Computed example of a mutant assay.
Amino acid sequence: MDINLPGMSGYEAMRKLQEWPETRAIPVIALSAAAMPRDTRRAAEAGFYRYLTKPVRVDELTGRSEELLLVPAAP
């Protein structure tokens, strides 16, 4: 999910996803051009699974996506 979505920030969207039982356990990878350590911390605190910076490296995005496929689903 891009952090700078039009009309709603990725952080706001993540909060909404975490509010609903149906979407609470879905892991979300954040994408942003902001690459400072504070940006990474904020994303972790918001509950994002991983935080990737732009330009996105395809191998990194693929690797993180594969991690998700290997993670057991929440009950």
Rank of each mutant, 00 (worst) to 15 (best):
M1Y: 00
M1P: 01
D2Y: 00
D2G: 03
D2K: 01
I3Y: 00
I3H: 00
L5H: 03
L5Q: 03
P6F: 06
G7D: 04
M8R: 07
S9Y: 02
G10L: 07
Y11S: 04
E12I: 02
A13E: 01
M14L: 15
M14K: 05
R15Q: 13
R15S: 12
L17F: 13
Q18N: 10
W20K: 08
P21E: 11
T23F: 10
R24D: 12
I26E: 14
P27N: 13
V28D: 12
A33Y: 11
M36G: 05
R38T: 11
R38Y: 10
D39C: 01
D39K: 03
T40F: 07
T40C: 03
R41T: 09
R42F: 04
R42L: 09
A43H: 01
A44P: 00
E45P: 05
E45W: 08
F48D: 01
Y49R: 06
R50G: 01
T53I: 04
T53G: 04
P55E: 09
P55S: 07
V56F: 02
R57Y: 09
R57L: 09
D59F: 07
D59V: 07
E60D: 14
G63E: 13
G63D: 14
R64C: 13
S65W: 13
S65C: 15
E67F: 10
L69M: 14
L69H: 08
L69R: 15
L70R: 15
V71T: 15
P72Q: 10
A74C: 08
